[in-house]
Design a binder for these strands. Structure first.
Lengths: 184, 184
DNA sequence: ACCTGAACACCGTTCAAGT
DNA sequence: ACCTGAACACCGTTCAAGT
């Protein structure tokens, strides 16, 4: 049976989940699918387009924000959902950041984030700016957390601040931004 | 006269300034220095280490924060200085983000940022978390700005929001974070 | 001490030619 | 329509051997 775009993207997500971004190469992906590398370019324009699709998949399970909840609460929940979607996939945050950079507006949950910021009272002109702050915080804190994990594995002296404290970083930062929203 | 680590790093910065990160390869760097690629590995352990050094150079001109200024004012000025240092170098924000990820604590102005957050009244336990929010905002907004410039060049229809408005994104986000600091 | 030559094990992408 | 084979133009890194 013929290869499909669907199949290409699914296998790409699989490689990412299992081995991380460094192993997600077009050639490796072709090997996994038992086709020649050139075959992929029938289903996908290039690697960038593939990564945008992969990022979409990572965030696909995030639920639409509940319109009946208080705006700020829904915003916090959405930020947590974004974080969780990306936290357990190696280099997941980088892939989403890349996709957002390459093709902003292509990620449904990011668009929802912008609308939530609006519901929280931020005027239309400033919504995207504030949503970017939240998004950068989510993605940045996940990356920092992963790197700290690596540092911990590599260098056992690096036990100064333990893993639980590291994870709390996210909450603190999110609270600062939410407090800022109330004041501006 | 023999090659030196100094010379290697300086030329790397040069290539980055002129052609961006995609062109900053070990082989290209060797060509520019008129040596074999292997020669670089006498002066530098690997590409990661080189990029950490390059990031340090990009931020080297940032002045130490003025201890006599009000904390919040000094913090805002420092954030602006970080932004300016990185804004005019193609992929400068990515290089700094990478260096910070690979070797946190290696960038003097980032350490100063943490101390400024402390001076602004954030308790020691939460200083790093908040400093990361500011740093991610600075680097993230520069990346977004650059990508928007590219989109503008590529697709003239993308004139919806003009360049000046795009640059203001940074100010809005920074104000939200500063307001958050006052409230938490 | 410092560098070259040559290799190893890879990349992303294109494209004529096949089915 | 969909894929292969083969090429093009690259990567980062290592290391024996030279000076």
């Amino acid at each position: 049976m013929a290869l499909s775009r669907e199949q290409v993207v699914t296998t790409a997500v699989d490689i990412l989940r299992r081995y991380g971004l460094a192993d997600l190469t077009m050639r490796r992906l072709a090997r996994e699918l038992e086709v020649a590398p050139g075959a992929l370019y029938w289903h996908v324009a290039n690697k960038q387009e593939l990564l945008v699709e992969v990022a979409g998949r990572l965030l696909a399970a995030i639920p639409e924000p509940d319109p009946d909840r208080p705006a700020e609460e829904a915003l916090a929940a959405h930020a947590h959902a974004l974080r969780e979607a990306v936290r357990h996939v190696p280099d997941g945050a980088d892939v989403v950041a890349l996709a957002h950079a390459v093709d902003p507006g292509s990620l449904r949950p990011v668009e929802e984030l912008v609308r939530l910021v609006g519901r929280a009272g931020v005027p239309a002109r400033e919504r995207e700016a504030v949503a970017e702050v939240v998004l950068h915080h989510v993605l940045g804190s996940v990356t920092t957390e992963h790197n700290q994990r690596i540092a911990l594995d590599l260098d056992p002296d690096f036990r100064a601040r333990d893993a639980a404290a590291v994870a709390k970083t996210f909450e603190v930062g999110l609270e600062v931004v939410l407090a800022g929203l109330r004041r501006v």
